[in-house]
Design a protein around this nucleic acid. Structure first.
Lengths: 150, 150
DNA sequence: CTCTTCGTGTCAGCTTTCTGACACAGGTCA
DNA sequence: TGACCTGTGTCAGAAAGCTGACACGAAGAG
């Protein structure tokens, strides 16, 4: 193999992508035994924290398009994890809610995901963690602003 | 809209995913005019820094499977951006190299991507940047270790 | 030398996600 | 009131990525 310690890149962007990739893999690994994907879990978690979210809002929260979230929601609804009214109470927005089954399913997943997050933060002090939080928010803010301005 | 400042999640994992998503969008935006995707760019950049990488090594560096990288390489080869020997000089490994055309194409892309990275780091001190670097590496290391151990 | 293990390139099929497009609801403003 | 713009849900097609599987070469263990 050719894994000499070449410094590949000193780029923070590359490192961010790598971290995200490793995190995603770790989450997939613990969610697979539960028959759940990352987007699947994200959707349920969002609904638990903010009941009644619409399809589009869920999509934004899970960082996918509303079309993708829509197919996921249709599956979740068919399998009885979430409920959507047949008719929109106002406008076209269909507020989605967890069913008891969805809530139970989410509980197991939350435990699994939390263990991954704990593992990720191992070896970091409280100060470092809040520093990481602030730094990531700064990156997001800077990119979003520039994005709108460009 | 329903964008009250609900604290959605205090999770570093969520924030990491968000940052990665925003970064990806920003990169896609500046690469699209050049007819290039993020994976496409990653592949070329890796080859510039480490000429002769194999398909599998490129896949690992770009965080995709070798199968995905293989179809990308076939396209890049057909369009004249990279070259691979018809026969493996040793084993089955086909070392890939940039053509002059690939190098020219990469130069423009590098400028575009660097501008995104500069924008991302705007408002961060040198100290914060090196702190971010260390923190991200710590996360990656912790997740990788646990991954192997699990 | 033989066997086992590991990494590699590649074929096939499938899943997920995305882009493009349409009609409709609600708010704003003249 | 009517025009305009934004956000939404949804349909259809295409692109990108993944899993599973196979055969082959290299390297190490016995």
């Amino acid at each position: 193999m050719n894994q000499e310690g070449v410094d590949l890149e000193r780029s923070l962007g590359y490192l961010l992508k790598e971290a995200s990739s490793v995190l995603r893999s770790a989450m997939e690994e613990v969610l697979r035994p539960l028959g759940m994907s990352v987007t699947h879990y994200s959707c349920l978690e969002l609904l638990a924290q903010r009941p009644g979210l619409s399809n589009s809002e869920l999509a934004r929260g899970a960082f996918v398009t509303r079309q993708s979230m829509n197919v996921l929601l249709q599956n979740l609804e068919r399998e009885g994890y979430v409920t959507r009214p047949a008719e929109a109470p106002v406008g076209k927005v269909l507020p989605t809610r967890l069913t008891p089954r969805g809530r139970r399913s989410l509980e197991k997943a939350t435990v699994a995901v939390r263990s991954v997050e704990v593992r990720m933060l191992a070896g970091m002090t409280e100060t470092e963690q809040s520093g990481a939080f602030r730094i990531l928010q700064s990156m997001i803010h800077s990119l979003r602003d520039g994005n709108a301005g460009a």
